[in-house]
Design a binder for these strands. Structure first.
Length: 215
DNA sequence: GTCCAGGGCCTAC
DNA sequence: GTAGGCCATGGA
């Protein structure tokens, strides 16, 4: 039995399917992926609610809004100056090179799209992979801080691996299935949040709850 | 009051 | 190539 698959099954059995990403459209996934950088999702929700209320969850509106207006709407998500720029840069690129058609961009050659995403200021590996996987339904595993901490705690990582190494570990072992990748990342986040909620002070220790104990 | 969240960039060594 | 500082709000 493959270890990563076993852990996934135990998480899924325990928490149930989460059906990530929490967004109504692929474009909204992009917005959320940028806004959630180093930020609690509850704060992102406030920002997205503001954007939705102003009908600003579209490429056209975000490009049309002034920087000050956009900053004000996304203010609750923190780092609002950086993030407003990042949103505008992304939208400008999408408009200029793909006439605003997100899907036509994301369905191109995977390595090429990923490199192009990473070339944009403010789009790092995690944000790029979240966009590829959840907005584009492309086979690109998302690694976040939780992933490193949890799998280090489980003894499958040392804690010194870089992003690319962790991503490769998952992509080499898991079957190539977009829904599996999507659900696995969701399960990791849900599990780690739950562990933090139960005991913030000792979150590392509590990552290894009974459902994950490997026999 | 303190800690930290579903990162990423820039600058020093 | 990498460690450290910086960005900012809001909930626990």
């Amino acid at each position: 039995m493959k270890t990563l698959t076993t852990i996934y099954q135990r998480l899924l059995d325990h928490y149930g399917s989460r059906g990530w990403w929490p967004a109504e459209t692929p474009f909204e996934v992009v917005i959320g992926a940028i806004l959630t950088q180093n930020t609690n999702w509850s704060n992102v929700e406030k920002a997205i609610t503001n954007l939705r209320h102003e009908e600003a969850l579209s490429l056209e509106t975000i490009l049309k809004l002034s920087t000050e207006q956009l900053e004000k709407l996304i203010y609750p998500s923190g780092f609002f100056r950086q993030k407003s720029e990042r949103l505008k840069w992304f939208c400008a690129h999408l408009q200029e090179h793909y006439q605003g058609n997100l899907d036509s961009w994301l369905q191109q050659d995977l390595d090429q799209v990923r490199s192009e995403l990473l070339s944009l200021k403010g789009i790092g590996p995690e944000t790029a992979d979240a966009i590829l996987l959840y907005a584009g339904q492309r086979l690109s595993f998302v690694v976040d801080a939780y992933t490193g901490r949890l799998f280090s705690r489980l003894g499958l990582l040392t804690g010194k691996e870089k992003y690319a190494q962790i991503r490769s570990m998952f992509m080499n072992e898991l079957e190539p299935n977009v829904q599996l990748y999507a659900e696995y990342h969701a399960q990791i986040v849900i599990h780690c949040k739950e562990c933090c909620r139960k005991n913030r002070a000792a979150k590392i220790v509590h990552y290894r709850i009974s459902v994950l104990t490997l026999e």
